[in-house]
Structure formats: C-alpha cells, structure tokens
Write a protein that binds this DNA or RNA. Sequence first.
DNA 1: TCATGGCAAATGATATATCGAACCGCCTTG
DNA 2: CAAGGCGGTTCGATATATCATTTGCCATGA
Lengths: 235, 235
Amino acid sequence: MGKQGDWYLPEIRKDDGMTTQDYAYRRIFNAIMLGAIPPATSLTMRGLAAYLDLSPTPVREAIRRLSSDQAVEVLDNRRIRVPQMRIGRFRELIELRIVLECHAAVRALPHLADIAIADLAAVDARMDAALGMQDYDQLTHLNHEFHRRLYLSNPDQAIMPLIESVWLQLGPFQRQVLKGVQSYYLVDHHKTILSALRDRDADRLTVAIADDIRDGIGRSGAEALEGSQDLPPAG
Amino acid sequence: MGKQGDWYLPEIRKDDGMTTQDYAYRRIFNAIMLGAIPPATSLTMRGLAAYLDLSPTPVREAIRRLSSDQAVEVLDNRRIRVPQMRIGRFRELIELRIVLECHAAVRALPHLADIAIADLAAVDARMDAALGMQDYDQLTHLNHEFHRRLYLSNPDQAIMPLIESVWLQLGPFQRQVLKGVQSYYLVDHHKTILSALRDRDADRLTVAIADDIRDGIGRSGAEALEGSQDLPPAG
DNA sequence: TCATGGCAAATGATATATCGAACCGCCTTG
DNA sequence: CAAGGCGGTTCGATATATCATTTGCCATGA
C-alpha cells in the first residue's frame, strides 16, 4: 500500500469568507461522514496538510475539533486515526441515535410549518433520484440533510451538534450501509416519517424515526459486525 | 471593569505527560464548567495565553476544541465568548440532560457491580461534607463525578462526551444553582438514585435522575431566567 | 529466519514572525 | 454636546522555525 493511498478527501464547495482552518475541518469532516477514511487508518497532520496544500497549523486545529467531536482519536503516541468500531460501541451508538433523534423530532414537531414538510418531501424526492443514479455519496448527503432539516425546525434546539457527533462516529458505515440491500427500506421510512409529520402524530413519528435508523444503518452495520469483534473497513 | 478582571481560571491538578494544549483545554473547560467565566464575556486567545503564560498556539487549539464542545462560540468578528443563555435554549438543554442521562443510567445499570454502587455512595457522602463546608466548586465537581461514574460503568458507552457537552453549556448556571436554596434537594435525589441502583430498578432510576436534574439546575435556572429573555451573569 | 540495536528522517508540540482586519480613543466637525 | 472619521494598537489566521520523540528501516548477530 502506498504511503498515502488509503484515504482521500472528497472535494467540497468552498464558500468564501471561509477560513482555511474551517475548510480543513469541513473537508475532513465530510470525508469521515462519507466513510472515505477507513477506520484504523493512521493519519498525520503533516500528511493531511500536504494533501490539502496547507500549512500544518490549520490542519492541527481542525483535527482538534474533530477529536472533540469524537470523530478521530489522538493516541498516546500522538498518532491520529479514525476509531476502530466494536460491536458493543456500535450498538450504543445506534441506541444513541434513536434516543437523540426521536427526541429531536418530537420537539421539532410543534415548530414545523406545512411548507417545511413540503421542503422535506422535496429532499426525499431528490434521494429517490440519487438512489436511481446510484450516487451513494449524494444519497448520504441528502439523508443527513433530510434529518437535519427536520431537527433544526426547532429554533431553540441544542441537540443537532450532538446528533452530528454520532453521525460522524457512524460515518465509516454509511457507505457500506447505503450500498446494501436495505437502501429502499430507508427511503420507505422517510415516507412514513413524512406521513407522521403531516398528521402531527408524535407517536407514529417516534416509531418511524426509530425504524428508519434501525433498518438503515442499524441492521446493515450489525450484519457487518457479526462474528467479528472488529469491523472490517468499509472499502 | 479591568481589561481582564471579569474572569479567572481556577487552577487544576497538572498531570505530567499532559501536553500544554491539553492543559489549556482542561483549565478553560473547568472554568466554564464551574461558571467562573460569565456568559457574554469577551475572551481573546492572546489574553488567555498571557494569563496561562503560554504562546497563543496551544490556546487556540484548546479554544477550537471547546467550540466543537459548544462551550464557547467564535463569532464572525472573531470574538470568542461563552454563549448568552436564552430561556428557550435553557429548556432544551434541561430536556436534553434528562433524555441523555436517563438513557445513560439505564444502560449502565446492568454493568453496575455492588462495589461500584458503594463507590457512588462514597462520592455522595463527600458531597454532603462539601455542602457542610459550603465549598461549592468542590460540590459541583463531586456532583459531576457522581453522575460520570454512574454512566461510565457501561464499558461500551459513547454517550459521556455528549453529556459533558451539555454540562458545559449549562456550566454558567452551576454556581448559581448550587448556592440556591435547592441544594439539599439535589443531595436527597442522589439518595433516591442510590436506592434505585441497589434495587436494580430502572423505572425508579429514571424518575430519580429526571427529578435530580429538574429540581437541581432545572428549577433554579428557570427561576433565574424568569421574566428576562437573557440570563443575568452568575456572578 | 528472526530478534535487536541504532541511526536518519519524519512527526507532533510549541513558539515566533508576519499580515491584514477589527477595535479603540481621540479629535475634528457640525 | 453629539456624530463621524482617523490612526495607532490589538487581535486572529497562517506560515515557518525549532526541538524532543517517534517511526522506520537496515544492518548485525543469534
């Protein structure tokens, strides 16, 4: 394997006014979220800096933020890596997603205007299109956007950063999951979520969110982890 | 007001092998957790660096981590501050604490050995002592340690960093809360928690945790926020 | 063949230098 | 006396320099 052949950082849209450090953060964030960096890959700040054509300083700051997000771990020997997944931690993360996202959805519900539900439906439609084109990175993006928009409808929310942290920790699975046979189930669950939203039915909403998570990444991830203590890389 | 008279950073035990950046992080983390930095105080990286007798670089990295923890916000004009609290966000944070910590406690329950419950009781006893001596910083520390130990009993837990983030965001209230008249209620709730743990009763545990949070910081904080949209500084 | 010692290169941590933007007082002007 | 403008000062962002560790690799020897 090449010295730096194990990972890549998908390009992102670079807003101006974006600081270099922020750019590095989002670039790496995005890569982890999409599963483009296999777990246990050893990263170096200077290597990332060279890849991004930056000095080590802003990359270091980005890595610090990501370590607070639990997206990477900084080992004692100062090595940086995306954590290896273990079955126990995986189950905890899935349960966390369910608890957090059900809570977030229910608390967003009173704030959700009809127009916002229509926007969500539009995102869902774009997911169908992305699925048709087998554009899995885009599918992952849109799935996150669907959930994010829903939860952010609550103007006082403080939960979204926590949810994103869990997403990040599950990031290495996203790719693998969406390529699995369960993909259409995920989309179906979104239809159920939309229906519950339109009826303002908190109970059905909770069930739909939980099912979405469990049948999506939950089921596929658990399958991938079956039998082995550690998760095989998503590649 | 003096140029730097509004805040101070309580000293902490400095392990060796601790990196300077980590030291800065923990020092500021601790200060926010104890409410030693009033909300809306304008901080500068150079000012913090001078106070800690460090170069700006490690302080900057610590601030980045804290911004990912939602403990500080970095404004567009590059000003750094502990966020102002608003009543809506406060309610969200309290509900978040309840959801997260009830979940964490229930999932810790099966892993909790009798000896660990005894340890928790010992921490609670130290809280009674700290209360007697009116050592509120210590009381806050011990309160966090009580909860932290409980939740960390689950070896696969991934929730603790999220809970700490919420604690941090509520940090500016801790001081104010523990000085309030509700202090003994808090301790009483810990006795109820311990009782539920001994009986391995998940339902009673959930109620006890929720009551602990609601009657502790929840009630006092809500009182402080009553009538005003913004929270007065804890000073 | 495989363990071991050691050296050169790479790395992380931190301090410092530099640069442009933001801020702060003060002074002018109406 | 109030509002606006000007210039020096401070600040954050980033690049670079420095230093102690760590890594990796290769030679040596069991």
